[in-house]
Amino acid sequence: MPNLTEIRWHARAGQGAVTASRLVAETAMDDGQYFQSMPEFGAERQGAPLRAFTRISSDPIEIHNNILNPDIVIVLDETLLPTIDVCEGMKEDGILLINTRMTPEEVREVSVEVPAGVQVRTVDASNIAVETIGRDIPNTPIAGALAKVTNVINVDSLKKYVKNSFAEKFPEKVVEGNIASIDRAYEEVH
């Protein structure tokens, strides 16, 4: 499956990584793509490091196994960087997207050993979330940044999905805040 994109998420339990992987998968669904989204289940406790996986493809996805060689790795919490090898198994030309105040250069210099071919992208999704949504829930802005750095999901489709699905559950202000967070992350990603 040459057009298969595999994403691995690193976060702490409670940060919304599962919701984010679902957000990306459902946006892809609205664009007629096939997808899988699976959190890695284990001891479920707030703050514990966890991983989640997303597959997106234009063809039906028939494999059911863990993603060992992701095209894209997304880190929702930079405090994981010193303890977890987020680059493990990454494709040589993969993309590493991190929620941090640091620039990609700073990440390479001070934080992680990133293989030369891997593209590092950063966005301060937490700060954007606080300023637009009012809470540190970086998952919606990180999806906006993902739409910018890859073509795996389309930013307009993402906004449309958020508008439609969030409107069922949240007041308009929250929906608008989330849309604004996508726009800002899309613009501000390094």
Binding site: S21, R22, A25, M29, Y34, F35, Q36, S37, M38, P39, F41, P60, I61, H64
Partner: peptide, 12 residues
């Protein structure tokens, strides 16, 4: 259905 692999993974 296979536990987690099918029961919990989001699928189309």
């Amino acid at each position: 259905l296979d536990g987690f692999i099918t029961s919990h993974a989001l699928d189309r």
